[in-house]
Structure formats: C-alpha cells, structure tokens
Write a protein that binds this DNA or RNA. Sequence first.
DNA 1: GACCGGGGTTGACGTGGATCAAACGCAGGG
DNA 2: CCCTGCGTTTGATCCACGTCAACCCCGGTC
Lengths: 247, 247
Amino acid sequence: MSTDAATARLAFEVVKTACSNCNLRELCLPIGLDPDELKKLDELVSTRRRLKRGDFLYRAGQPFESIYAVRSGFFKTDVMIEDGRDQVTGFQMAGELLGLDGISSEVHSCNAIALEDSEVCAIPFSHLESLSRQVHMLQHHFHKVMSREIVRDHGVMMLLGTMRAEERLAAFLLNLSQRFKARGYSPAEFNLRMSRDEIGSYLGLKLETVSRAFSRFQEEGLLAVNQRKVRILNTAGLRKLMTHQRS
Amino acid sequence: MSTDAATARLAFEVVKTACSNCNLRELCLPIGLDPDELKKLDELVSTRRRLKRGDFLYRAGQPFESIYAVRSGFFKTDVMIEDGRDQVTGFQMAGELLGLDGISSEVHSCNAIALEDSEVCAIPFSHLESLSRQVHMLQHHFHKVMSREIVRDHGVMMLLGTMRAEERLAAFLLNLSQRFKARGYSPAEFNLRMSRDEIGSYLGLKLETVSRAFSRFQEEGLLAVNQRKVRILNTAGLRKLMTHQRS
DNA sequence: GACCGGGGTTGACGTGGATCAAACGCAGGG
DNA sequence: CCCTGCGTTTGATCCACGTCAACCCCGGTC
C-alpha cells in the first residue's frame, strides 16, 4: 500500500470516526469530556464496522477484545442454553454500548446481532482502561454506563418476575418510545426493528401472546399497530396499565 | 478522646479490616494485587458496618457513596414499583459486592437487606475510582466484577423468561451450592437464609409453587429438605432437570 | 404445659398464557 | 400476473402456575 493511499484512508477514517464531531456524543461515552479529552478518545476509537441486517457483531464464546458503540442501526443481544432455548437480553440503539458482558471472562457471553444495517465504533477495551486511568470523567462515565446496565437488567427482572403480559408489552413500548425521543425521533410513532418472536423472547412471552396484546391495545385505542409500524395514541393509558395492580 | 485511645482503636480497626489478612481476599476485590497494592487498598477500606438480621444496608433513593463488600452474613437486594410489587434481584454472600446499582445515578436503586446478622466493609466509591487509576489490577478486576454482575443478571433473565418452576428452583439451588463450595462450605448441605417467599420473588414464582417444587424434589430423591435445611442428594439429577427440554 | 404467631405444606380450584392449528397479508421471484 | 414463504393474526383448547384456604410445625412466651 502506498504511503499516500494509507494516509488518505487514515485521514478519512479519523474524520469519520471522531467522537468529537459525532452527533451521538451526548448519549455515548464522550459525555462531559472537554475538547482536549475528546481528542484523546478520538485516537482510541479508531475502527468502525458496518454490519448488514442479520450479521453477528460477536458471538458467545468468541474472545473479548473491544466494546462497541452503536453509531447507527439496531441490535439485539441474546443468550442460549444447551437445549436450544434462548432469551433476548436487550435491544441496543444508537449511542448505546455493546459487549460489556465480555469483560468478566474475556469471552463474550452472548450474541450480538444487527436487526438492520448498522454501524458500530469498536473501542479496544485495554485502551479504554488505560485512557480512563488518565481521564477521570471518562472513567467515571464508563462506570456509570456499566451500572446503568445493571439497573436496566433489574428492571427487566422486575418485568419478567412480576408483570403480566400486557404490562410487559406496555413497559417495553414506553421504554422504546422514550429512547427514540432521546435520539430526536418521534416518541409516538416508530418502526419496530424486531419480530414478534424477538419481542416475546425479551418479554418472556410467546409470539402469539405478544400479537394478541398488540391487538388488544389497538381495540382499546391505546395505539395503532400495523405490522411493525406502531403509533402510540395514549401514553398515559399505557403507563397506567403498566403499573396496574393485578385485579 | 485521648490520643492513646484513638490510636488503639484505630490500630485495632485497621487490623480487623485489612484486606491483606482477610480470608476472603481471593473472592473479593483484592484478587491478584501484590502486597504493596494490597496495602493501598487497606487504607481505602476503612470502615466496617455490622448489621442485624432485617437491617437495611441501604434503601432505594438514598444517596450513593460507597460500595460494600460482604464480609460475613447474607443479604438480599430488591426493587419495588409504586403499586407495591417487588422483585428480589439477588442474594449476596461473603466476598460479594453490594451497591453497584447506585453508581449510575448516584442514588441507590434498590434496597439491600441483611438476611442474617452480617458485616460489610464500606468502600467509598470516589476513593475506589482514584485508587483504581493507580492500580491497574484493581481497575481491571473491578470492571470484571461489574461485568460479572451483568452476566449474572442475563442468567436470571434466561431463568425468568424461559424456564419452568422446577427448572428455576434447580438452577437456584445449584447456584447456591456452587457458591457455598467456593467459600469452603459443603456444596451438598446448607441452610437457606431466605424464606420461600423470598425465593419465589427471586424466581418469579409464588411461595406455594416453591414449596411444592421442594416437595417434588424430595419425593424424587433429588434432595432432602426440612424447612430451611437443604441437603442435595443428586446433583446430576438436578442439573439434568435444569436443562430439560420442555414437553 | 398451654398459647401464640409466623413460616411452611398441602389440597381444591381458577385462569393467564402456552400450544396447536388455520388463515391472512405482504414481499420477493419467476 | 400468480406463486411461494415467512411473519403475523386469530381461534380453540390445554395446562402450569396462581389463588384461596385449611392445616401443620416449630420456636418463643407467659
């Protein structure tokens, strides 16, 4: 490879991947960093990966090296046990991190799969650790992100352990809505990137139950559904349903 | 307070709380630290707290300042929603950390309650962050601990989302057994520190269902139960049951 | 030793969601 | 244009677990 070509390619990538001009920086790792610190982070986040719908970002069992920030697109993560049963553990959208599960054993413990054409920034974990030794804000923010993931998981445990089908779906939809909103999209109208089956797996329900709950919400005027297109008509109604004491 | 008395008390506490001579150090934060680094950690872990059965270590909503290492005893953590439903999110025993959920919002997001008389080491979080900027192994190990918590939560999601009652209980008992074993206790015979109701809350089941599952295991010769005393008679049988394809 | 209370067990019955099955609708391909 | 296939919807039936209720067991108290 000629030096010129290499330089050009490099320059191109650096511009493209710079956290400092990424419009997700307020949602992603760089929160609260000053321009100087941001520049250091830019150096760290050097590689990008494009994935097509259905591609695996990583698989359970593969060695862990990097965590990934979703730059665009949509992912799911799932875990599997020997007998073939699997559980979707989360859906990730722009600005969210993937791969934190791999730190503990240096091997990924779940699969991460693109639900639509997507792009991620790879962040070599050892570099992240060494940079976060220098940049306090980065260190602290990274800890917050991991902690937030734990809190989120507790919420899912609550949902799976104590809520009934319609409450689960309502909670799920409100959560999606709020995350779309945080990214500047309409909180009321969006396209689901996942199938009924994937929603069911996440919520601990069968796809038929998910479908029926959607139909019921529609009958009750809470939302309009057509395949994967969802429009929320009554947010308060959903929220009320979610916290509704059983009978 | 006289200087002598203060010194004496201090010396006493330092000895008592020193990670360097704690027999849990291979299970807890100090893993892999050299003697020099251990000494720094000793300085950090300055305060201990004793709790009686039923005491709250912290409550949801309280400001987060420290994480806690269980030195002896047994805890549960739970989250609650407005309508009063609650979900036990975990049980913690010696060497395990409590409070990681509080990092994300600087407020605890769950309750931590002692299930028996217990003792914890408080680790001021800001100090931990600054020490882990100096001691790479500590930093790395702390990240592993947080990640392990995430992986554990995914396991619970799997359990709640896809397993049936007896599979859940089997998984729960095997997990406890393995953790007792790691601490030098018998993996086959132990006392449950939690009630049927608390087990049920953790496993997403009602207490009657838990009780029935225990009885069934006993009938099948998998274990001997008497109130909270459990003896596992057939580990392989439990393990097989756990992964048993439904139908 | 009688009483009491809280956790645990067991039984009878009800029900929410799983399962099984059929049909629909939309996208892609010939 | 029709055919094909997959994801979704809807209906009928089933069953695992929840609910309700009685009873038991054990430890603590007077």
